[in-house]
Design a protein around this nucleic acid. Structure first.
Lengths: 216, 216, 216, 216
DNA sequence: TATGAATGAGGGTTCATTCAT
DNA sequence: TATGAATGAACCCTCATTCAT
């Protein structure tokens, strides 16, 4: 859960040697189009044109348009949850973060970083989940089961320590998530407008989360 | 901000005498389809079939498919913000709710009621906002400017009374909103699954909001 | 074949007591639309709107769109050939016009007058003839047989008198017609532009016709 | 302005290597349909069927139905005026045709040849001009400005020589054009009927033109 | 007589996908 | 591997016409 630089997912695509040059262009074009106009409203023809590639080329690499979407969202989810999947909870808890606040702040900053770097892809994921049952299942499986589970353990630990409220751990996790997603949403909506101070809002959000979960 | 029964928007459509019987069926079918598969992935032909109506009939009443969407979302937004637009802030504050907690709880319940009754339409609104600049503008204009402004006033009042934290009022409002929207989203995602207790989750959310905003 | 004022066909419609007020508006709207955009490209809906009438009203008076077209073109043709049908050739020839030139000039002026007054309707007739076999037949029957026949008689008379060339009478008639229609076409195309002097062009056309038909 | 064989425009399309086999079939089908029923009354579906091609194929090659029309009429106009654009007036006048009659006869025959070979396409052009402002402008620009200008020069030359009447050169050109177009129109209308002798009518037309323009 | 809601066939066009090159 | 022509189903929408009011 450190602050070290991760490369963005899109950059990962670009450095993947198993991908053709054209394939990379297709992915980049698809990401931009899907995030702007949505999956259903983006035509493969439009993607091909934006990628500077023949329409057939898309289908040489991805059997269907849907598969192209999944080739974006699947690694997206994998990377999204990676830090949680690999983290050794015991080590994390005992050595890295004495206080919950510290852990939450670190996590928030880290994932916020990830989200900022992969804004378009996160946008696609969130936008398309309502319309694709398989995407939703995949999401629930990954985020809901794996990550959620890990967080629940974490929350329980801090609850046992008496640091935070004795609410259902799953609820606690959901509340945190909502606050963070809300922050990102506001950032997408407001970013650039004069009244929006992204850093300060982040701090406010963290403060809100912390106090919302305080014991008593 | 009372708990009195409001009729759902869809019922309002159904009781609107200026609408043909067929028109009502079209609206109902469109609401169902749009909320399930999204605007772009719903064909006018599918709507017509679901409504038991000729496809041409749709276009007699709504010049375009987009206009049909807006005829759903526009009154949706109006009703959504209605309680805030008409509420007399001074009266509200001085007589109805001595404590912020009471007001928030009442408001949450009231709007939660509205959202539950109009789940499909709210879903449409939230789902389509990313894809329709005009919808987004309309939303910002209504929710962002009108409602937000009113809430900011309210928050300032309670801040002056010393009840809640001295954070930017706009941030406070955003944080509350995120938590509530997060609750609804979870409800949509989880409703029906065994682990989900909607009532309790609502209480948890309110508790979280209250403490998140506590002074000090 | 005198120069007396005839009312235009459209005015005739307007004064016809057997026509409803609405019906007159429909005819006027149809004439304008058909002449501007053509029969096939004009919708009954557009006609109804331009006439300020419900779409159903059109079909109360005219069973089909085609019938509406014919209700314009049929009287058009009747009026177009009326002077020729009623004229008493012998009288005309022996008393009215000693010289062919005089007759032609009078006829040209008279029909030109008619065409000017009914520009839109003539335009419709000429435009639609290529697309409607029945219109074409009707046209051939009326203009081709009746009028043509009369003109052929006339031409023969002047040929017997030795005034004009001994070409096939039918060819003579066709040549005159082409020159006159050419004049009207040019008028439609050029009218209003600075270089176009309608009166002078008409005189040129007549001169051209006369000399084109001169003996020897 | 020689009588050498030109290939018809449609044959040119058929020998154009830049066109797909299907594209040629589409063009042939469109030419036939447009000339018979008119542009507005011809459906792309009908063209596709007649061409033995999927409807989508049409739109792969021509973005819109209108573009398909223009892809027929534009080269049509180019070829129509080509002989006039490339002719060296001085050479023509001094060496080829001592008398105006000879030039006119040659030109008439040459263009008549072209028109006969491209009857369908000429028909389309003339039929659609009233309904398409852009076509009309294009026509005026090409025929009206370029060709007309050249003819005016020619006419002036012969007027200076004293061969023909001292009428406005532009009127002279118009009168000739009307007579020729009239001939073609009659040919379209009458061709096949027993009384129509195309060759003789052409000679009559030329004679009529010549005498119509005689001095004095 | 006049309306305008309703129809469903058909309009032009776009779509994701296939396949010969 | 990459192309782009070809497909035909499906898209949104318009059409002429009908009919209950």
């Amino acid at each position: 859960m450190s602050h070290n630089q991760e490369t963005s997912l899109e950059q990962l695509f670009m450095n993947d040697d198993s991908l053709t040059e054209k394939q990379k262009k297709i992915l980049a074009a698809a990401i931009e189009s899907f995030s702007e106009k949505g999956y259903a409203a983006t035509s493969t023809n439009a993607i091909a044109k934006k990628a500077g590639v023949a329409e057939g080329t898309i289908f040489r690499h991805y059997k269907t348009k849907k598969e192209l979407l999944l080739s974006i969202t699947a690694p997206m989810m994998a990377k999204m949850i990676a830090p949680f999947v690999i983290m050794d909870i015991n080590k994390v808890l005992e050595h890295d973060y004495d206080h919950l606040e510290d852990f939450l702040r670190a996590m928030v900053k880290n994932r916020m970083e990830f989200i900022k770097k992969n804004a378009a892809m996160v946008k696609i994921l969130l936008q398309e989940i309502p319309f694709h049952p398989d995407l939703r299942e995949q999401f629930i499986e990954n985020i809901g089961k794996k990550v959620f589970g890990r967080f629940v353990e974490l929350v329980k630990y801090y609850q046992d320590k008496g640091d935070i409220i004795d609410m259902e751990p799953s609820s606690v996790v959901r509340l945190i998530a909502a606050s963070l997603i809300g922050y990102v949403g506001a950032h997408q909506l407001m970013s650039g407008s004069p009244g929006w101070n992204s850093e300060k809002e982040l701090e406010n959000s963290i403060h809100y989360i912390m106090h919302g979960l305080k014991k008593g």
